Simulated scan of single mutants.
Amino acid sequence: MIRRYGKPPREDQRYKARPGVYAVLPRGGHVLVTWKDGLAQEFQLPGGGIDPGEQPLAALHREVLEETGWRIGAARRLGAFRRFTFMPDYGIWAEKLCTVYLARPVRRLEPPREDGHEAVWLAPDAAASLLQNDGDRQFLVAALGVGVAR
Rank of each mutant, 00 (worst) to 15 (best):
L102G: 03
L131T: 04
D136R: 00
T85W: 11
A58V: 15
A126M: 08
L122D: 07
V148D: 13
G135E: 00
T85M: 12
D125Y: 08
G73W: 12
R108L: 06
R137T: 07
A119W: 06
P124T: 05
W121A: 08
S129I: 07
L140S: 06
A58H: 13
P124M: 03
A80H: 10
R76P: 04
E114K: 15
A74Q: 14
H61L: 12
G91N: 02
I72M: 09
L97P: 02
F84W: 14
V148T: 15
Y101C: 01
L122Y: 07
M87D: 12
L102K: 02
G116L: 03
A128T: 06
A126K: 08
R62M: 05
Y90I: 14
T85G: 11
N133Q: 12
R137D: 01
A143T: 06
E114F: 11
L97E: 10
R62Y: 02
A94E: 06
R137W: 01
V148N: 13
C98Q: 14
R108M: 04
A142V: 14
D115N: 13
R76L: 09
F84D: 06
R76E: 13
A143W: 03
M87K: 11
G69Y: 04
D115H: 12
L131K: 01
E63M: 06
I92C: 05
K96L: 14
P105R: 02
G145Y: 06
A94N: 06
T99H: 00
R71D: 11
A119R: 07
H117C: 13
T99Y: 03
W93V: 00
G145C: 06
L109W: 04
G135I: 00
Q138W: 13
L60F: 05
R108N: 01
R107K: 14
W121I: 11
G135A: 00
G135W: 00
R76G: 10
R82M: 11
W93C: 01
R104V: 14
G91K: 02
V64I: 13
T68K: 07
V106T: 12
F81I: 10
G79R: 04
A142P: 12
A128G: 07
R104T: 15
R107T: 11
F139T: 03
V146C: 15
E110W: 04
G79P: 09
A59M: 08
E63G: 05
E110D: 08
G116F: 04
T99W: 00
G79T: 08
W70C: 00
T85N: 10
L60W: 01
L60A: 06
P112C: 05
R62W: 02
M87C: 10
D115S: 15
F86W: 10
F86Y: 15
A142K: 15
R83E: 11
R83L: 09
S129H: 10
T68P: 05
P124Y: 01
Q132P: 12
